[in-house]
Amino acid sequence: MNVFRLAGDMTHLLSILLLLLKIYATKSCSGVSRKTQELYAIVFIFRYLDLFTDFISVYNTFMKVVFIASSLAIVWCMRFHPVVRRSYDRELDTFRYFFLVGASFALALIWHEKFSVQEVFWAFSIYLEAVAILPQLVLLQRSGNVDNLTGQYVFFLGAYRAFYILNWIYRYLTEPRFTRWIAGTSGVVQTALYADFFYYYFISWKNNSKLKLPA
């Protein structure tokens, strides 16, 4: 565990918990793509199938459980919470996300580290995470709504990506034979898509600020 990896995990955790708390406190999920959140829940469930087979550390197990539980809690709130669900932008969140799931699974069948159920699902979760932000990007472009997607969520999610890339560079330089072809390539794609998301978020945020000029 190096400092970049720890910072990456902490900012990732903060981004998810902040979104959950924000939704719960304001009782609104306006501007949040449920499809993106469902994809993240699928990502964690399929990546952490090794919870039951491999023990790495208490930290590792604890973080996996928290990630699965918090992402499921966000999805639960958006689907079933009697107040929160009413603010969901259903008609704007129309991205065909089954296409992403299918494409990621197909790629995982072709490119994986070992042909086993666990390893194919692990690769699938890595590819799906890389593109999971797309429904949120589309929703943001359509609604221009940045009320609920707080600056902090966007900031911490971006910091998580940046720290993980620094972590891989650090491990590549310090550990003999360290390579992460699948995670590394997907990580770069994910960061590029995130940069696009950030760009639109910033434009949207700027435009909203302009609209708030006193009449």
Binding site: D50, D54, I56, W122, Y164, A183
Partner: peptide
């Protein structure tokens, strides 16, 4: 398990 790489990152 021997021979299998464990995914130590989250």
């Amino acid at each position: 398990p021997l021979g299998q790489r464990i995914h130590d990152e989250l």
